[in-house]
Computed example of a mutant assay.
Amino acid sequence: MAYNKMLVLQTDFGLVDGAVSAMHGVAHTVASDIQVSDLTHEIPPYDIWNASYRLYQTIKYWPADTVFVSVVDPGVGSARRSIAVKTKSGHYVITPDNGTLTHIYKYEGVEAVRVIDENKNRLPHSQESNTFHGRDVYAYNGALLASGQVAFEELGEDVPVDSLVTLPVIEPRLQGDTAVGTIDVLDVRFGSLWTNIPLEMVKELSIDRGDSLLVTILHQNVAVYQEQIPFVRSFAEVNLGQPLVYINSLVNIGIALNQESFAAVHHIGIGTDWQVKISKVNK
């Protein structure tokens, strides 16, 4: 079994206690020679949408055969499934089946799904614990898979790909001379808004850098922000504290303030309740 011995962990646990370290420890106990890395452990508590997006944002930049473990699990101990999936790009993800795979399923594609038996396939002597599946089920099985001690096909029963739990996603669209999308996620540390409007869509509207854009942000269909904003290549092209539209690292439209948090200043959130409309201001 030719797995690449790379395991990447994502959780909403934070680093204020020993939970993440315990997951690392279990993985290295299973296979001392695997490389264990962290995607992030700062997903907002219980925020499955955010976990889904961060996986999608990151997974493509890792080599094929890398195993990802994502644990944002408000339903731990319930009837929700524990699953392992193989993506069409050749990566593996072990996670609760609660919507965490929404963006990968929709935009990357899933080739196969296995349901993990939480009672059998778990850290030895952990059967009495039902609240730390991140350590006892996910990190444990992730390390077994990454090290090649078990094959993907041995992790559990094969189930249909379309049985995966997914969250609602609203596709970006053109509405006359306006691009309409949603705010998928924040560039958390800096407070920039990352939309799902791709560069190619605004090009269809003959929008280019240097143009002034009318940006409208709506929450539950009520406009909460509207302003003319320059479309630029870099933050340095506007003064401190001024707004800008730019292309983010996923080649989608981003909206920001130079060296301030757009999300905090204007009280903007993320998800399908938050809509963005962008059109060109004719000179």
Rank of each mutant, 00 (worst) to 15 (best):
M1F: 10
A2K: 10
Y3T: 09
Y3H: 05
K5D: 07
L7G: 08
D17E: 08
V20Y: 10
S21Q: 11
H24T: 10
G25R: 01
T29N: 05
A31I: 07
S37L: 06
D38R: 00
T40M: 03
P45V: 09
P45M: 06
Y46D: 00
W49T: 04
N50T: 11
A51C: 04
T58V: 00
W62C: 09
D65Y: 12
T66P: 08
V67M: 07
V69T: 01
V71Y: 00
D73E: 02
V76D: 07
R81H: 13
K88M: 06
S89P: 02
T95S: 15
T100K: 00
T100R: 00
T102I: 08
I104D: 08
E108N: 12
E111M: 11
E111T: 12
V113P: 05
R114S: 08
V115Y: 11
D117A: 13
D117T: 09
E118Q: 04
P124E: 04
S126E: 02
E128G: 10
F132Q: 01
F132K: 04
G134W: 04
G134I: 04
R135H: 07
D136S: 10
Y138S: 15
A143Q: 06
G148E: 02
V150I: 15
G156E: 01
P160E: 05
T166R: 03
P168Q: 03
P168F: 04
R173T: 12
D177R: 15
A179N: 08
T182M: 07
D184Q: 02
L186Y: 10
R189V: 15
S192R: 09
W194L: 10
P198E: 05
L199Y: 14
E200H: 11
E200C: 08
K203L: 01
V215E: 06
T216H: 03
I217Q: 13
V224K: 11
I229K: 08
P230C: 12
F231Y: 14
F231D: 11
R233W: 03
E237R: 15
G241V: 02
P243D: 00
P243F: 03
P243Q: 00
P243L: 00
Y246Q: 04
Y246E: 04
Y246T: 11
G254C: 11
A256P: 00
A256Q: 05
N258C: 11
Q259H: 12
S261D: 03
V265E: 02
H266D: 07
H266E: 08
H267V: 06
G269H: 10
T272A: 09
T272P: 06
D273V: 12
Q275V: 14
S279Y: 03
V281W: 15
N282P: 00
